[in-house]
């Protein structure tokens, strides 16, 4: 076992804090872009702690089970990633976590949350090929699926798999639940779906979902960092630039239909994937 358990535990403790701070900063930057002052930096923490103080109402008790499973496996995903574990298992665990979240939405039977669940599944289907191909690309470059080996690879991974990186960036928006891909649920209320996936979550159930989302944001930023791991300074700058870009896109674009989201994500992933994976295959063989 070469897992670095310490970094995994550090992730488990710090990720909600960092994720919450990112969410707070996100809201301030968004507000400034819209010409508002915005909430204090710690507002997301206030919001979530208030959720936990409320009385929880559930449609069915099983909702709890699914949402708890969701946060457990999101945390597991991130902890495995930050301990340097196998990147494919990380991707699989992430899918498992999301399936649990989707089951939570299905269990409630509100038409809004069920449609949200279906849309979330479509988003999952749009997202998955890109992250799997990124993992494949990293393996082709570093000859290992283990995050610890990929991160210590001597060279700029971003320069070898720029196409896959771009494909991932495209679907990254979906996972952040930002426009134009905030189709299944959103940080703002929908016109047609209320809160979609999370419509029937309230109180601590909703609070758990929020914290899981913070975990996920930090994990995904960590995943992007892998592309730039050759130089930590460039890596951090890249993360900040990319996140600001996401906020900007969120603010300037309107929500698209699921069909456009799926089609565009697949076409981009397929074209860039064929070109980039092809180049990697032919460089080595």
């Amino acid at each position: 076992m070469n897992l670095n358990i310490i970094t995994g535990i550090i992730f488990l403790i710090l990720a909600p804090l960092i994720g919450g701070l990112i969410a707070g900063a996100d809201r301030i930057v968004t507000a400034r872009m819209q010409g508002r002052v915005g909430p204090p930096l710690l507002q997301p923490f206030y919001d979530v702690s208030k959720l936990f103080e409320k009385e929880t109402m559930v449609v069915t008790t099983t909702q709890y089970v699914y949402v708890v499973a969701y946060i457990v496996f999101i945390a597991f995903t991130g902890a495995l990633f930050f301990s340097g574990g196998d990147i494919l298992l990380v991707v699989f665990a992430l899918t498992l976590a999301h399936v649990f979240l989707i089951m939570g939405a299905y269990a409630s039977r509100s038409p809004y949350s069920v449609i949200g669940a279906e849309r979330e599944l479509i988003m999952l289907m749009a997202f998955e090929p890109a992250i799997i191909l990124c993992a494949a690309g990293m393996y082709l470059v570093s000859k290992s699926f283990f995050v610890r080996d990929i991160i210590s690879y001597n060279g700029a991974i971003i320069l070898l798999i720029p196409g896959l990186f771009f494909a991932f960036l495209y679907v990254f928006t979906m996972k952040l639940r930002k426009s134009p891909f905030d189709i299944s649920t959103s940080h703002h209320a929908h016109q047609e779906l209320i809160k979609g996936l999370t419509t029937d979550f309230s109180g601590s159930v909703l609070g758990i979902t929020e914290i899981a989302h913070w975990y996920e944001t930090v994990f995904l930023l960590g995943f992007i960092y892998l592309f730039f791991a050759f130089n930590p300074v460039i890596g951090i700058i890249a993360l900040i630039v990319i996140y600001l870009l996401e906020i900007y896109i969120d603010n300037v674009s309107a929500r698209v239909r699921w069909s456009f989201a799926l089609k565009s994500a697949w076409i981009i992933t397929a074209v860039l994937g064929i070109v980039n994976i092809g180049i990697l295959f032919f460089r080595w063989w």
Binding site: L121, I132, A270
Partner: peptide
């Protein structure tokens, strides 16, 4: 490439059945 796309599709039809 085919495996990456096929796996994603698999998740969709099984999950909605479970749901």
């Amino acid at each position: 490439l085919i495996l990456a796309f096929g796996s994603a599709v698999t998740v969709f039809f099984w999950s909605k059945w479970m749901g």
